[in-house]
Amino acid sequence: MTDIRAFEGPQEAGFGDYVQLLKPRVMSLVVFTALVGILVAPVSVHPVLAFVSILFIALGGGASGALNMWWDADIDAVMRRTKNRPVPSGRVQSGEALGIGMGLSGLSVLMLGLASNWLAAGLLAFTIFFYVVIYSMWLKRSTPQNIVIGGAAGAFPPMIGWACATGAVSVESLLMFALIFMWTPPHFWALALFMKDDYSNAGVPMLTVTHGRRSTRKHILVYTILLAPVALAAGFTSIGGPIYMAMAAVLNAMFLRGAWRIWKRDEAMAEADNYAVEKSVFRFSLYYLFLLFGAFLAEAALRPYGFGGW
């Protein structure tokens, strides 16, 4: 027998665990789309204020991620993809996640209001509310359309960026919002098709679980068809131009072809090649969004030289 014992209290979080709480990978998409929103707007913003605005839009997104992890810790613990997140793995206490999420939400909205304007701050506050209350607390566990409506939260950043520069909401920012909103369902349903057991084990009513995989394949095709006119319509506004239109035509044709291939397959075919088509469409959908927003940026960058825009 010995008197030396190890103290087995709750684990202490490292700084990296708090960073993980803010979902840095999601934040990178928020930073990119908000940056595009601010840069393609017709009003120029002082670089310092643009930087501060983007930073606090990203922090607001991160804060909503922390609140989502606080609320969803029970289902995150069941799913393979999420069981190592800081709260379910015990590295960060549930109360800490709530405190950090609430504190950073308030701080990010306040600082965005001071750096740009209160419309942008209001939109950020609404985005956090929408993601945490409407999506995480309400829809995620109650309807298979969770992804469709929850996708709106991820669609707000370019609209907030545009509002930072112009102080208004316009057809351009609404179309950038609609582009991400319509892109989200086929993107996530392609993921749900090959992350087979995760959502059903956690009891989350994903379309694959409630309506079956045949219906999910049909939904991917329908939403990709609806996405195409939205992407092309954005090209006819002041942020579009020939580069964007060429890019949108090619990328939408490729996305439609991928969705068509997913629709044509059945489960036996998908299992035979380990969901190769579903995985490639999911990967492609990431490039799709990145390249379309990159094209908006290219149009804005080339405009002073007489190339971009119509």
Binding site: E12, A13, G14, F15, G16, Y18
Partner: peptide, 13 residues
């Protein structure tokens, strides 16, 4: 190990 982790956290904050 916990001291290094605490130091890292305090430095980060």
């Amino acid at each position: 190990e916990i001291h290094t982790r605490r130091f890292g956290r305090n430095l980060g904050v």
